[in-house]
Design a protein around this nucleic acid. Structure first.
Lengths: 202, 202
DNA sequence: TGTTAATATGACCGATCGGTCATTAATCCA
DNA sequence: TGGATTAATGACCGATCGGTCATATTAACA
């Protein structure tokens, strides 16, 4: 008897629309009406699917981080330093649209919005990312590709911070594709030499 | 006959107060009244010294960046790779309060606030910072301390992004002093090996 | 001390925003 | 097709914010 909609799809569609508007106008400058318009819905309808603007925002970030987390989990360990460097390079070489979202991400992440729980949640994500790099590094140390003297755990975490900085700057300052590539290449080259085991070839 | 105040000092005091509140509550969550209270002034008084909240914010960022720019300009060229690495290390090893401001900085820098001119302004600052590193690198390449194959310009710029990422993460996620130090140490060690000229000693 | 011009104040205003809810529209089944 | 139930709507509301301005206060000089 009743009208029935795919609620999960609806939620996702709304988040897609919200993300588009956030990237265009910024989080704080976007009104719920803006999101509704972008989603071709009335404002009231949004509140059927999300209990507040905050909840919508949290959902966007959650979905985004969950996607990357999944990607990381699926990744296999690199068997050579070169493969690992390739991995790092690709992490930084994000499409412009994703870099733009990064910009929103840090706006949302300012003290105005982020609760302690939310902060913890995202902090955990970056710790996970750091652990992933640490695992790769430890593995390559065992294989003699990366110098033993590095502390895999903290090096992994600082790598996560540094890569994030590179991507963020691209999104914030609209660094051109060409320049960004060049920057990445230099960083990766330096990483390679810096990590390399002294007994390794070359 | 009239009452006279030191307008420049007043402006600075107001900016100090605003900065304190921004760090505590976040930029978008801070009202002009909050700033007034923190400065022990009435709201209307603020508008004698700044024509809008935006103008106040821009002034804060300008002052902050000008301070760093000055610092950079005063810096002399490093004569050894170790000295340069020490420089990088100190850049990342910022006091907690400055890292906290970084957090606000990126919130302000979201698309909600930042105009194109403002973005350009800050982009230029980071380019300047990148140029500074590039100059150091080029100098050390001439002295045979850093490998010739690096492109000083783009390596300098990517260094700026990476260091920024490290500092930002400290501010955002409240990474502990101990952990942060450990991360910095690893990064610097890696930088050292990565930059080092193959003909160099050690 | 009284005068006067600069400075400070905070009640007030228009605009806007997140969120609500009475009403309407849509859809499935009998 | 008609009735029952879910889904969608947008006018409306209370709260809040940036910004203004008529008024009060302050301090330098005669």
């Amino acid at each position: 008897m009743p009208k029935i909609v795919d609620k999960e799809k609806m939620r996702n569609d709304i988040l897609d629309a919200a993300m588009r508007v956030f990237v265009e106008k910024g989080y704080h400058a976007t009104t719920v009406s803006n999101v509704a318009e972008a989603a071709s819905l009335a404002k009231g309808t949004l509140y059927i699917y999300f209990k507040s603007k905050d909840a919508m925002t949290t959902a966007i970030v959650d979905r985004h981080l969950a996607g990357i987390t999944e990607q990381i989990a699926a990744e296999t360990l690199c068997q050579t330093l070169d493969a690992f460097l390739e991995d790092l390079q690709q992490t930084m070489d994000v499409p412009a649209e994703q870099a733009a979202f990064h910009r929103v991400f840090f706006e949302v992440f300012g003290p105005s919005f982020a609760s302690d729980e939310f902060t913890d949640h995202v902090a955990q994500f970056f710790d996970k990312l750091g652990s992933y790099y640490a695992k790769q590094i430890a593995h390559l140390q065992k294989k003699g590709e990366i110098a033993e003297h590095h502390n895999a755990v903290s090096l992994g975490r600082v790598l996560a911070s540094m890569l994030d900085g590179v991507v963020l700057h691209k999104g914030l300052f609209g660094i051109s594709e060409r320049r960004h590539r060049s920057m990445i290449k230099d960083a990766v080259t330096m990483f390679g030499k810096g990590l390399q085991s002294p007994t390794s070839s070359e």
